[in-house]
Computed example of a mutant assay.
Amino acid sequence: MNISLHDKRFEPYIKEVAIQNRISAIAEQLSDDYRGKRPLFISMLNGAFWFTADLLKSFTGDCEISFVKYRSYQGLQSSGEVMQSLGIDVDIKDRDVVILEDIIDTGRTLSVFLEILMQHQPGSVKIATLLIKPETLQFPLVPDYVGFEIPNDFIVGYGLDYDGLGRNLRNLYVLEK
């Protein structure tokens, strides 16, 4: 069923069951990769909060969680500027860090955050993202865990929004063409 948010129409794209299955697979892989360790998961707010919650419910080891908030989107497009609202508030020196991201589009936000993160001297850094748009990537980022590779379409739902609306949708929706 198609939906309307503000002045735009969206059609179904990826169903919740497929999202949950993929997140469970990523959580299993992370659990294996960090067996016997205590990683610090850093969730990129606001969009990654659903991905983070579902992933950590399936992670089987000890872990810690922290949140940061950076944004670069206004409406349907990236503003080109990365703005920080909430920064790193825990000691990450020599820690195994896993960044949890909802979507990697151009990679600008994550690239800026990684520069800041590296100043805190983590022991290791891995990236897990629910979605990536390989054709729009402008920064040399290679996530270690990827839910879905998608084309350059505007997506809402499952934590992603269009001007504040749509984050609460259980499925992912794509902008109608």
Rank of each mutant, 00 (worst) to 15 (best):
14 I>A: 05
14 I>R: 10
15 K>Y: 05
15 K>G: 14
15 K>A: 14
16 E>L: 09
17 V>W: 07
17 V>M: 07
18 A>I: 10
19 I>F: 00
19 I>S: 03
20 Q>G: 11
21 N>A: 05
21 N>E: 14
22 R>K: 14
22 R>V: 00
22 R>E: 03
22 R>T: 05
23 I>H: 09
23 I>R: 10
23 I>M: 05
24 S>M: 08
24 S>E: 10
24 S>R: 13
25 A>W: 02
25 A>F: 01
25 A>P: 07
26 I>N: 06
26 I>L: 11
27 A>D: 08
28 E>P: 13
28 E>L: 10
28 E>G: 15
28 E>W: 08
29 Q>T: 13
29 Q>G: 10
30 L>Q: 09
30 L>I: 10
30 L>S: 07
30 L>D: 06
31 S>C: 05
31 S>K: 06
32 D>K: 15
34 Y>F: 13
35 R>A: 15
36 G>P: 13
38 R>V: 05
39 P>V: 06
40 L>K: 08
40 L>A: 04
40 L>Q: 10
40 L>H: 08
41 F>P: 08
41 F>E: 04
41 F>Q: 08
41 F>R: 04
42 I>K: 11
43 S>W: 00
43 S>T: 13
43 S>E: 02
43 S>Y: 01
43 S>I: 04
44 M>H: 03
44 M>S: 08
45 L>N: 08
45 L>E: 05
46 N>L: 02
46 N>F: 00
46 N>D: 06
47 G>F: 00
49 F>L: 03
49 F>Q: 02
49 F>A: 01
50 W>T: 15
50 W>I: 14
50 W>R: 12
51 F>E: 01
51 F>I: 07
51 F>S: 08
51 F>V: 09
52 T>M: 04
